[in-house]
């Protein structure tokens, strides 16, 4: 009996080890990188400094935010951010007046083009702020979106 349970135990632990080495457990590692403090920050400066380590930013004309002027449904606001700035390592989307302004941050590698689109929720009429990180510096642009029906809660 003892030998049997011993075998079972070793088998079980070895499957875990195999799973881990095969990368099946990587989501856990990935999860650790999620910047909780930035996503929970309640103002833009905190969100930016928790995410990028600094809130210093420069307004840049070379960032283009494509979003509707008037969004009928705040629960689904399509946003496209693109820029001609070189060497972009991250693009973040911030919804200025949401309870937690930071909506998303896209980390881009050197192969990726500096263009991303997604859809976000907006509680009310506000500015969308795009933050582009390039060479350790932050560049921002804003676009106002009028929301007729809020999309955070009901």
């Amino acid at each position: 009996m003892k030998r049997r349970s011993f075998l079972k135990g070793t088998l079980a632990s070895s499957t875990i080890a195999v799973a881990a080495s095969a990368g099946l457990l990587t989501p856990r590692h990935v999860l650790a990188a999620w910047p909780e403090s930035a996503f929970e920050a309640e103002n833009i400066e905190d969100a930016m400094s928790n995410l990028f380590g600094t809130a210093d930013n420069k307004a840049a004309d070379s960032i283009n935010i494509k979003a509707p002027d008037i969004a009928e449904n705040g629960a689904v606001v399509p946003v496209t951010v693109s820029t001609t700035i070189k060497g972009v390592s991250a693009i973040a989307i911030i919804a200025e007046k949401n309870g937690t302004p930071l909506a998303a941050n896209f980390e881009l590698t050197s192969n990726a083009k500096a263009m991303i689109s997604t859809r976000i929720k907006m509680g009310k009429t506000m500015d969308i702020i795009a933050v582009v990180k390039s060479g350790g510096k932050l560049f921002t642009a804003r676009k106002n979106v009028k929301v007729t029906i809020g999309g955070c809660g009901g």
């Binding site: 629960a75 909506a103 998303a104 881009l108 192969n111 990726a112 083009k113 263009m115 689109s117």
Partner: peptide, 29 residues
């Protein structure tokens, strides 16, 4: 996370403010 040829191209970190049934689009060379 999006990978091409075993290398990460884009790693998106999202908060709850991304819409239900999320859509994303990006490009790479």
């Amino acid at each position: 996370k999006c990978e091409h040829g075993g290398k990460t191209v884009v790693n998106a970190l999202w908060g709850a403010a991304v819409s239900k049934n999320p859509y994303l689009s990006f490009a790479f060379t």
